[in-house]
């Protein structure tokens, strides 16, 4: 008797598909109705929500800010994450596991708890301000809460651990022997980095970068908490519009814009992946 693996797939697939299709279609449909206030929606299909989004400067500035902070967070995640990923991938002792565990722990603990720590560190009498003022670097307390820098910090708390784990698997695809070959032929470390490690990891890093950027675009909790109610990224605005203003249609429109931009970036990364595979840029 041959096992029917395709039949085993059916119940799980139906559940996943129905949940996804139903939820997405319903909210996308709602985004075409008019908000009548108090959560009620009109009956007619209209495009004014989308029209408003793309003509209203406020909404456009929110989208632009979301892209800016996401880009910065992605950039810093790569800059700080790649060396760590490289270090762990090349370590041959038990320390590699310990260091990985440190990263995993930090990604597993909810950002809400970390934000408490950040609040305490950056409070006027907190350890950061006391140290910096004690050293004479600052003359008055500085904080990351409630400004754009804070949002970038928050996004990085969301992405850095994940970024290290993804980049770690990228570095693992580069054979150590290539670096040794370069060194035997007289390259110093700097040249090994610029001529071997960076070029070989570039395809993987590009795809990881797009993934990280996407995570940032959709990140709600860290942006909301470190924005302190003063910085609005798209996800923060969505929550506010839906929960506080009870405008389900406008919320749906904002969510649709976010979803579509994220999906476009995804398509771009899939396209890049297949192109790199064809050109054999990715070592797999």
């Amino acid at each position: 008797m041959k096992a029917r693996w395709d039949l085993i797939l059916v119940p799980s697939f139906v559940l996943s598909f129905v949940l996804m299709a139903a939820s997405q279609i319903i909210f996308l449909r709602a985004s075409f109705y008019k908000d009548l206030g108090l959560g009620r929606q009109g009956e007619d299909i209209i495009f004014t929500n989308y029209g408003r989004f793309f003509t209203d400067e406020f909404y456009l500035s929110v989208l632009w800010l979301t892209i800016q902070v996401s880009f910065l967070a992605m950039l810093f995640t790569l800059v700080f994450g790649f060396p760590v990923a490289y270090m762990i991938a090349r370590l041959r002792s038990r320390w590699a596991m310990v260091l990985l565990a440190g990263i995993v722990i930090s990604t597993f603990i909810t950002i809400v708890i970390k934000v408490f720590g950040i609040y305490i560190m950056f409070s006027a009498s907190g350890i950061v301000n006391q140290t910096l003022m004690g050293l004479g670097i600052l003359d008055k307390p500085w904080t990351v809460i409630g400004n754009d820098a804070g949002v970038v910090v928050g996004l990085m708390h969301f992405t850095l651990g994940f970024g290290v784990l993804v980049l770690y698997s990228v570095v693992q695809t580069i054979p150590r022997s290539l670096e040794e070959a370069a060194q035997i032929h007289g390259s110093n470390r700097w040249r090994v980095w610029t001529r071997v490690i960076i070029p070989l990891s570039l395809p993987g890093v590009t795809v990881s970068a797009l993934m990280i950027f996407n995570m940032c675009m959709g990140a709600f909790t860290s942006a909301a908490l470190l924005g302190g109610g003063r910085v609005f990224t798209l996800p923060v605005l969505i929550q506010r519009v839906v929960i506080m203003e009870v405008k389900y249609s406008m919320g749906g429109t904002l969510a649709a814009v976010l979803l579509i931009s994220v999906l476009l970036i995804n398509l771009l990364s899939i396209y890049l992946m297949t192109r790199m595979r064809k050109q054999r840029l990715v070592i797999t």
Binding site: L9, S12, F13, S16, F17, M20, A22, S23, Q24, I26, F27, A30, N214, M217, G218, A219, F220, P235, I238, Q239, V242, Y248, G251, G252, A255, L258, L259, V262, L263, N266
Partner: peptide, 24 residues
């Protein structure tokens, strides 16, 4: 196609999932 439908929930930002499920 099947496997990307299974993976889709990870591609959709959680906040969108939240809004969508509430409306559903």
């Amino acid at each position: 196609l099947f496997s990307s439908i299974f993976r889709a929930p990870l591609q959709i930002p959680s906040i969108v999932t939240g809004v969508a499920f509430l409306q559903m």
